[in-house]
Design a protein around this nucleic acid. Structure first.
Length: 377
DNA sequence: AATACCGGCGAGT
DNA sequence: TCATACTCGCCGGTATT
């Protein structure tokens, strides 16, 4: 048995910040008159007046039964008796703008910062607080206060010994809360939870675990790691076991995005359509985003979603990285034509519902305006 | 044998 | 019934060196 000479040494204090019902709250701030009403942020696909899905809803709408991902038509049905309901289209640009400002203020409150999504971030405050959770809570309160003072937005805060536990804490403190899970409390917190509540375990994994008679996190924690590895593969098997025990050594890292994509729903499912016409604006957007982030992409891919909602994707790696709209559109078109050119599309019942483009495998460009092979000569 | 790439899937916001 | 738009990570297969 090797004992740790100084256990406090690798004890971390991690803060998770999660903006409450983010898109809907942004809209409430922009137009306070809708506060108190059911607010639903929708992604309208443009097929019919109400086709599409719910992205986010405020708590008034959630309490009436509106959920993320549900069809807009269903949300409307649920809300039909509430004549004051507000359905708004997503305004991603605005949400990103507000998020960017918030993330910059959050960043200043810790030594290491990681943005996990548009409305979530982690801070490592170990050194700053000497891993004293009381002090981490104080930092969490400061962050809440500062975000509210600057943007009139509420957020929730979770504090834990690692990212996983901070995330579990923030989830149970929502909305507008703050919660700590101390190292000693980890097992008490986790053990009684159903496995599906553990971050990273979705419906598929939950079902499979059920088949192994594992329904609680405590049961998962004491499950045989060898068995888990056989069932889920090496990586996931070990990860499940570690997660269930509240163990997570992933560092807080300030990462750059590693891919960007855009996708749209076609007006009608189609066997063929004007690929370039549909893709041009999406590619233009990605090209601009590559340029402003000073990236060149080495891999271009197209994404197709068929009538049966199956995803098909094809990627091509380039000899010369690019950020050029023309180059990207040309490659995307080539991929599309070689894949679907003439009757590569098997059965006729399945047509194309959604089309998208993805760029990945980035390399930094020195000159933000560059991006053609010119730079490589 | 090691590494790179590829396509599908799962999970999350 | 209807079923968005993103991002990240892993798996198993195949190609490249």
């Amino acid at each position: 048995m090797i004992s740790n000479p100084d256990p406090a040494k690798d004890q971390r204090a991690i803060v998770a910040i999660d903006l409450d019902y983010y898109y809907a709250q942004c809209e409430e701030v922009r137009n306070p008159a809708i506060k108190g009403k059911p607010v639903v942020i929708c992604v309208f696909s443009g097929r019919t007046v109400e086709s599409g899905a719910v992205s986010t809803a405020n708590y008034v709408a959630r309490n009436l039964g509106v959920k993320s991902g549900m069809p807009i038509a269903l949300a409307k049905k649920i809300l039909q008796k509430n004549s004051d309901s507000v359905l708004l289209p997503m305004d991603t640009e605005y949400y990103v703008e507000v998020s960017d400002r918030i993330m910059e203020t959050v960043r200043t409150h810790g030594e290491k910062f990681e943005q996990a999504s548009i409305d979530e971030a982690y801070l490592d405050v170990t050194a700053l607080t000497k891993a004293d959770f009381q002090r981490a809570v104080a930092i969490g309160r400061e962050i809440k206060n500062e975000i509210f003072a600057k943007e009139s937005l509420t957020c929730s805060v979770g504090i834990g010994p690692n990212k996983l536990m901070a995330k579990m804490a923030v989830d149970s403190s929502k909305p507008d809360g703050i919660m700590t899970i101390l190292p000693d409390e980890v097992k008490y917190f986790l053990n009684p939870l159903p496995v599906g509540k553990l971050f990273g375990i979705g419906p598929k994994t939950e079902e499979k675990l059920k088949g192994l008679s594992i329904t609680t996190v405590g049961e998962l924690a004491s499950a045989n790691v060898i068995v888990l590895s056989e069932q889920f593969g090496n990586k996931l098997g070990f990860t499940l076991s570690r997660m269930a025990n509240g163990v997570d050594t992933d560092p807080v890292v300030d990462r750059e995005p590693e891919q960007m994509s855009r996708i749209v729903t076609l007006k009608h499912d189609a066997e063929s359509f004007d690929f370039q016409e549909v893709l041009k604006p999406l590619v233009g957007d990605l090209s601009r985003r590559l340029t402003t982030s000073r990236n060149l992409s080495k891999a271009i891919g197209i994404i197709l979603i068929t009538t049966d909602l199956k995803i098909k994707s094809r990627t091509r790696t380039l000899d010369t990285p690019t950020n050029s709209e023309i180059d990207i559109l040309k490659v995307a078109t080539e991929i599309f034509e070689s894949y679907f050119g003439q009757e590569n599309f098997e059965d006729k019942s399945s047509h194309i519902r959604r089309v998208g483009i993805r760029v990945s495998s980035f390399v930094k460009s020195t000159d933000p305006k560059s991006g053609t092979l010119f730079d490589y000569l």
